[in-house]
Design a protein around this nucleic acid. Structure first.
Length: 215
DNA sequence: CTCCCGATAT
DNA sequence: ATATCAGGAG
């Protein structure tokens, strides 16, 4: 417990030094676009999402446009992002709901957002944090993996991990911290071949210690 | 727990 | 060939 605090302190110091300008790497110009881009980014790199949304947002400029979309055509539009049937259906359905129930403007409340199809806490927190100044911890695959390796949580469920991290990280840092963790994960603490040699936190890391123990 | 699912790194 | 990528729903 006391040890977790110490690890978090060092982690935050490292992240602030190394990833001081971390931010969302999805391309968007308004909350509507970020919401759609974040849904498309599930199990897909931001790079590919940006390639798709670059043309997609010229064709669909509002929730009304997606609500009216031809589903087959829309599926083709987003195909390279993977899971395109589910994503297309969810975005169309969600857009219909936003048009009907919310007058075409997305709700800015996490409990309302999460009710929409295709939106979980991860997606909701990305949009709320980056567009509406409402801090939230984004538990994606990177945040989950790093938090587990460093022993900041014993849970495997993203919702529980989010709660564990909320206890450890100062609220005003939640959004920025999430982006810093994601860059850290892509850069050093990757899933496959993490660069433990260049990680200042390896002495606290279960993954690194296990790896050394076996060797 | 399973399914959705294309693109890329290893 | 296979694991993984800014997850979420049933």
């Amino acid at each position: 417990m006391i040890n977790k605090k110490k690890i978090v302190e060092e982690l935050i110091r490292f992240l602030d030094e190394r990833y001081s300008d971390a931010k969302c790497s999805l391309d968007y110009v308004n909350p509507f676009q970020l919401l759609i881009a974040t849904i498309l980014s599930a199990q897909c790199t931001d790079e590919r999402v940006n390639k798709v949304t670059c043309t997609l947002f010229k064709k669909y400029r509002s929730f009304e446009d997606f609500a009216r979309a031809d589903i087959e055509e829309f599926m083709e539009d987003i195909k390279p992002t993977g899971f395109y049937r589910n994503k297309a259906k969810n975005i169309k359905k969600l857009s219909e709901i936003v048009v009907e129930k919310y007058d075409g403007k997305m709700p800015e409340d996490i409990d309302e957002l999460v009710k929409l199809p295709g939106i979980g806490r991860k997606t909701a927190n990305v949009v709320l944090g980056n567009c509406f100044g409402k801090p939230g911890i984004v538990v994606d695959t990177h945040v989950k993996r790093i938090s587990q390796r460093l022993g900041l949580t014993d849970n495997d469920n993203p919702d529980k991990i989010e709660r564990d991290l909320m206890e450890l990280i100062p609220e005003e840092k939640w959004t920025k911290w999430s982006h810093q963790m994601i860059e850290f994960g892509r850069d050093i603490c990757s899933a496959r071949k993490p660069k433990c040699e260049s990680c200042p936190l390896s002495k606290y890391c279960g993954f690194y210690l296990d790896k050394k123990g076996v060797m």
